[in-house]
């Protein structure tokens, strides 16, 4: 079982990581940077304003970028019957989903934290704020990845799934955004701790919910 899961994990990583076989791409990252570029165009190149609000913009951009890969996460494997094959081999859907959350985070979280560096330069965010943003992303992106896999599993069997995914993801991701961006304003540590707490709660729930969704899609 663990050996099979390890092979599934390696396959997921190979599929999802940018440039991988499954068409995993840099698209969410480029989109993230594009949003960070768009914001100064909208509010004007006022450096103090950008520096003050930039951290929040990075968070909104990260949340929007998390919507993009959803239609590639589960649906192709569901169509090709991979989940049925794994179920026949006695591998629980929940375990497959937990593995996929980790793989999705690896293909998404660290790169987003890396892309936050040029975004911070564009928005003129200072060093200490950038540190909080990076720590917040480290605490928050696992939760975002977990929600992403859940939403992708829920909408995988629907024809209009891709259009729905954003509407489904945003309200669930709001607590991560509130605490993550909230860590920028006051105190810091409590916001980061709450972001991490929400992430952990989501990581605990979503493999079961997403596994249930895969089973529900079967009938």
């Amino acid at each position: 079982m663990t050996g099979a899961l390890w092979r599934i994990f390696l396959r997921d990583c190979a599929l999802l990581v940018p440039g991988g076989r499954g068409g995993g791409s840099l698209l969410p990252l480029l989109f993230f940077l594009a949003v960070a570029m768009l914001y100064p165009f909208a509010v004007g190149p006022d450096a103090p304003l950008l520096a003050r609000t930039g951290g929040g913009v990075v968070w909104v951009a990260a949340l929007l970028a998390a919507i993009l890969p959803l239609d590639r996460l589960i649906a192709p494997d569901l169509e090709r019957g991979f989940f049925d094959q794994w179920a026949l081999r006695g591998i629980a859907e929940e375990a497959v989903m937990a593995v996929r959350i980790v793989a999705h985070w690896l293909s998404f979280g660290p790169l987003l934290m890396l892309a936050a560096l040029p975004a911070a330069a564009l928005l003129g965010i200072d060093g200490s704020t950038l540190r909080t943003v990076e720590l917040g992303l480290l605490a928050g992106t696992p939760g975002l990845a977990a929600i992403g896999v859940l939403i992708a599993a829920l909408t995988a069997s629907l024809r209009s799934g891709a259009a729905l995914a954003g509407l489904l993801l945003i309200p669930l991701a709001v607590p991560i955004l509130i605490f993550g961006a909230g860590s920028l304003s006051t105190g810091g540590e409590s916001g980061l701790a709450l972001t991490a707490a929400i992430s952990l709660v989501l990581l605990a729930i979503t493999p079961f919910a997403a596994g249930g969704a895969i089973r529900a899609a079967r009938d």
Binding site: L154, S157, I205, G212, A213, A216, R218, D219
Partner: peptide, 12 residues
């Protein structure tokens, strides 16, 4: 599709 999909979303 399966009606259990919105039920899972409802619980989450």
């Amino acid at each position: 599709a399966s009606s259990r999909i919105p039920a899972i979303f409802g619980l989450v």
